[in-house]
Design a protein around this nucleic acid. Sequence first.
DNA 1: AGGGCACCTCGGGCGC
DNA 2: TGCGCCCGAGGTGCCC
Length: 276
Amino acid sequence: MPELPEVETIRRTLSKLVIGKTVADVIVGLPRLIKAPDDVMQFVELLKGQTIREIGRRGKFLLFCLDDYVLVSHLRMEGRYGLYRTGDEVEKHTHVIFRFTDETELRYKDVRTFGTMHLFPKGQEMAGPPLHKLGPEPLDEAFSAAVLKERLERRKTKIKPLLLNQEIIVGLGNIYVDEALFQAGIHPEKTPDELTDDQWEKLHVSIVQILQKSISLGGSSIKSYVNGQGEAGRFQHTLKAYGRTGEPCFVCGTLIEKFVVGGRGTHICPNCQPRN
DNA sequence: AGGGCACCTCGGGCGC
DNA sequence: TGCGCCCGAGGTGCCC
């Protein structure tokens, strides 16, 4: 489940592998993944001859910056990239192959086919979906407890679904929201008007610390995630709430509980994260 | 605005 | 014990 730390890790590993390579051909096995341009043949033709200059990230999106175009890629649940040699056996669930001029190729695999790719002329990628409405980057210097509070305080719904909303803040998914709320001692069903200034501060610090620590450990490998070189992350060994249902809280020993909030499996310590 | 479902596949768990 | 079925996993878009 790639969230910000996993996408950032993939960005860093892939950068070392494919920057400077030139696209010779593209094979699209599942046209449904290509959302722009409308015509998949055009997607292929526009990419031919383009060299990858840089790989960026915006929230959970990877941005492959080419000479004249930007390829915006979202991995959703289980998308992954890997560099292969032309002629290597094509593994199951490989849906897009970017064949380079040097006999290597970048392959996109996605078991659940939820991932998306948009190709835009350079400079137009922020003008429309899927990037145009995204909220601030939590690891930008400009992001603060005050910004977080300002963006949330007039909303009436529960804090957890708000933190998952990429228009409010980008990068958090189910795992890191549960971890941040645990570290901040905030119940996921609290509404913004119930939070104290101290809790806004704790929530901001928790979000930043958890994302930074996970990036430093190469992300979390819960089920299927690997970086651009097929390597697992290590942050999953440090999780304190997510996936620990029925196990004792590391802080107080109370058993971690799981229930559904906003349709998402949610893990809390009922003692450290009181409802009232 | 917010809740709920659809999208999709696999694997685990449960029932017979 | 083995097989088969159902459901849970969750990021996001869309519909109501």
